[in-house]
Every structure is written in structure tokens, then in C-alpha cells.
Write a protein that binds this DNA or RNA. Structure first.
Length: 153
DNA sequence: GCCAACGTTGGC
DNA sequence: GCCAACGTTGGC
């Protein structure tokens, strides 16, 4: 099993919204298409059913980890890329050869906020992709070591 | 709101 | 294939 960290801006989608979804399952991220090749490739090539991921809230007052999710549907074409009226419409994408993908995630549990500043205080976590300068990737792998350490915080 | 860092685009 | 210009991200 692999581990991941997936970012969402609270102004777009919060963990409360995930919690309040009846099935506690959503496509990642609802109403928003992921338009980054590296993130897409992670979903397509490296994510498996049952993988776990941290829910990370970014671009807000208290950035940090707020929960754990499970990957419950493997990468599939993002419907927004075919929707002409959508901001995420991509004219270069075809049904036969879709360019952008999504996965479904299910809430495992909420966590008390682990702030970014807290994560930065651990020397063992200094190589985490999320902590690297200039990091902008919305989906990043987390090592087993990092995963277990963060779970002990 | 600022701005550094990064990814993408498009002219050549 | 290079690279300048541009748009976006996201911490502060």
C-alpha cells in the first residue's frame, strides 16, 4: 500500500463537506479538475485501491493536515474536460484519448489539525515534498516512515 | 495583498 | 528545441 498527500483549498472543498457527503465519498476534487501532468501520472500509474492519503488544506489561514482518506476508485477520465461550458474544458482531449483523470476518495477519519508549521518542526520530515520550497503539486507521495511519524503526532 | 517559484504556452 | 512571457499556486 502506498501513501499520498492531497491538497485542497478550503474555499474549493473542505473536509467537512466530505464528511457531510452521505457516502463520505467524492471524486477528487468535486467541481474542480486536476490539470497537472505529474499529479495525473501519479493517479494513473501509482495509485491503487486502498491506498491512504492525507487530506491537506492549503492556501488558507491554517494550512495543514486535517484527515485521512482512502482511494476507492481508480483513475478514470475527468468528465469536466468534455464539458464545453466548464472552466476545466480541454478542447484537445477526446473520449478515445482523455487527457485528464480523477480518482474517488472516501473519508477514513478526520484528524485534529496538524499545522504546516508543526510538520516543519520535525527534522525527519524535512524531505517531504509538501515541505520543499516552491512545491505546488496537489498530489504527492508520502513515504511509510513519514506516514507513521505523522500518525504519531 | 505580495511575491517567489514553478508549469505551460507559443513565437521563432 | 529554446526561452521569454504569462498565469497559477500558496505561504506569509
Amino acid at each position: 500500500m502506498r501513501y499520498w498527500l492531497m491538497k485542497s483549498e478550503p474555499s474549493v472543498f473542505t473536509i467537512e463537506e466530505l464528511e457531510n457527503t452521505p457516502t463520505q465519498t467524492v471524486d477528487w476534487i468535486p467541481t474542480k479538475g486536476i490539470r497537472n501532468y505529474q499529479a495525473r501520472n501519479f493517479m494513473r500509474d501509482d495509485m491503487s485501491l486502498g491506498d491512504h492519503a492525507f487530506f491537506y488544506q492549503s492556501n488558507c489561514e491554517t494550512p495543514g493536515i486535517v484527515g485521512i482518506m482512502e482511494i476507492t476508485k481508480l483513475a478514470y477520465p475527468d468528465p469536466l474536460q468534455f464539458l464545453e461550458t466548464s472552466k476545466y474544458y480541454d478542447p484537445k482531449s477526446t473520449l478515445e484519448n482523455p487527457r485528464w483523470l480523477n480518482v474517488d476518495v472516501t473519508l477514513v477519519k478526520k484528524l485534529p489539525l496538524i499545522e504546516l508549521s508543526k510538520l516543519r518542526s520535525y527534522a525527519e520530515l524535512k524531505d517531504m515534498m509538501i515541505l520543499r520550497k516552491g512545491n505546488r503539486l496537489s498530489i504527492t507521495p508520502v513515504t511509510h516512515k513519514e506516514w507513521s511519524l505523522i500518525n504519531e503526532i
